[in-house]
Computed example of a mutant assay.
Amino acid sequence: MMKQLKSNRIESLDILRGIVMILMALDHTRDYFHLGLPNPTNLETTTPILFATRFITHYCAPIFVFLAGSSACLYGSKRTKKDLFKFLFTRGLWLIFLEIFLNNFLWWFDITFGFIQLQVIWAIGCSMVVLSFLIYLPKKAILLIAISLIAGHNLLDGIVMNGDNFTSILWRAMHQSGGFPIGESRFVRFSYPLIPWIGIISLGYCFGAIYKKGFDILVRKKLLLYLGIGSILLFLIIRGINIYGDLVPWVEQKNSIYTIMSFLNVTKYPPSLDYALITLGPALLFLYAIEGVSNKRTKFAITFGRVPLFFYFLHILIIHLASMLAIIATGGSYTDSILNTELFESGRLDALGFSLGVVYIVWVGIILIHYPLCNWYMKYKLKNRDKWWLSYL
């Protein structure tokens, strides 16, 4: 009789992580299959369903980063501070390496690396390196730093630095967003400025304490409920006042639906205070509701939630390859899938793409393709817990 594999991981956290990764695949499927069509957050050209498709995927990055901090806390609860420091520091550097060399190739298929975009894996990697030093501080100090970075970084929105000097480049990496050229043929873009993401991973690290062994479940559920509701109410108040909390204020639109869309159209790059509140608040309520729930749907989500890095790189590769096949099948050239500056500037991509309905159909297919692969890798990790290198994959 085959021995049943059991994991010591927190199921509710893995369920949440799995769901946001499934949603992340929707966003990236839209990126490749909805090309040339309206910007989903441009209220002049978008539609309610397109806006909603983009808005629901806003939950992915902050929850992904937040739970990375929680996982670090739980990982460190069974190890010394020195061991946790080593893990966070080395894994952070590893993620930065993967972002630059692997993720950029999978996104663009450009062997010249003419465009290097530093996205969420970069943000997690850099934030882990910073967190590796912060763990030596008292938890209250880490919590204070986290809240200050998340709630206070919008005070810096007015600081704009131009030029390609070191200070300007550093500021774009930390808060402003943007990039800089390397020579005449290469450009680096900081899509995920680091200051608020460091705050979010640090907040997640503090949050992980309520999932440590022995913590009272009823107390945890009360905290999740109160913090979740409190975050949403705080979002409604701050966003309603419309003075602070987001780089772009909301404005009244042509009808109530578009006015609501403007209200919800919060800034992700970098993630504003409003963005953090309206994404992390509902996430906490979800954790409150999902505690102790186990069924076929939650097990489906867990499969993805337990192999996040494997899923991330695999789904980018498969979606990109699928878009290449779609371009060829509709009479295009495979070279239109090798994304570079010349292709973006040529305008050829404007004529490519499918309806949003097709995007959803492809997304479902992508998830179904990934499930057996992720399920295999999840079981492989459970069978080989003694292999230290698996914690880096």
Rank of each mutant, 00 (worst) to 15 (best):
H153E: 05
N154V: 03
I159E: 08
I159L: 10
V160R: 04
M161N: 06
N162F: 08
G163T: 05
G163D: 07
G163W: 02
D164V: 10
N165Q: 04
F166G: 00
F166D: 00
T167Y: 02
I169H: 05
W171I: 00
A173N: 09
M174K: 01
M174G: 10
H175S: 09
Q176A: 01
S177Q: 06
G179C: 04
F180P: 04
F180R: 06
F180Y: 14
F180Q: 09
F180C: 09
P181V: 11
I182H: 03
S185E: 10
R186W: 08
F187C: 11
V188I: 15
R189T: 14
R189Y: 14
F190I: 00
Y192Q: 05
Y192G: 03
Y192A: 11
P193A: 14
P193T: 01
L194A: 05
I195F: 14
W197N: 03
W197C: 03
W197S: 04
I198A: 05
G199F: 06
I200D: 01
S202V: 07
L203H: 04
Y205A: 09
F207G: 02
A209C: 06
I210H: 12
Y211K: 02
G214N: 10
I217K: 13
I217Q: 09
L218G: 11
L218A: 15
L218W: 06
R220M: 13
K221A: 10
K222E: 14
K222Q: 12
K222D: 14
K222L: 13
K222N: 14
L223F: 04
L224N: 06
L225I: 14
Y226T: 13
